[in-house]
């Protein structure tokens, strides 16, 4: 019973998170022979507020920026009202989602998404015969 209510509560907060208006963080995406490098700007996001999720071929990056400001602060000018970031990508089949490496430093997330071994480019021998 107790477990159930907890699960329900968690679901609703997750729902809430998904419904929050989010900023689309700017990204750089590069591909080389062994995989992809994805860099995203997530200012204010720390390790505990970052969520990188792979579901099937869907990659989701989500995070909330938090900054310690005095409680009595009154915003007089804001270019970013709620630093809540979300962006998702569709991965292509040759990528190995289980080997994604994530690195977060100074509000910049760097993801390395390697290609599966068999998908790496191979030189094809041409036989003359």
């Amino acid at each position: 019973m107790n477990d159930n209510t907890q699960v329900a509560a968690r679901d609703s907060t997750q729902q809430q998170m998904e419904n929050t208006a989010a900023i689309l963080p700017p990204v750089d995406i590069f591909e080389d022979e062994s995989g992809f490098t994805l860099t995203a700007d997530l200012p204010g996001v720390g390790k505990d507020t970052l969520r990188v999720k792979v579901d099937g071929d869907n990659l989701l990056i989500e995070g909330e920026g938090s900054v310690a400001v005095p409680e009595a602060m009154e915003l007089v000018y804001a270019e970013i009202r709620a630093p809540y970031y979300r962006r998702s990508f569709t991965l292509s089949r040759e990528l190995d989602a289980s080997k994604i490496e994530a690195n977060l430093k100074d509000g910049v997330l760097k993801l390395r998404i390697p290609k599966a071994e068999e998908a790496k480019p191979r030189r094809i021998e041409v036989n003359i015969g």
């Binding site: 200012p43 400001v69 005095p70 602060m73 009154e74 915003l75 007089v76 000018y77 270019e79 509000g107």
Partner: peptide
Amino acid sequence: INVGTTPETIEVVAFAPG
């Protein structure tokens, strides 16, 4: 940039990653 005020201070926050 965001700018805020408190009774004691003026707070400027810049979103400058990396």
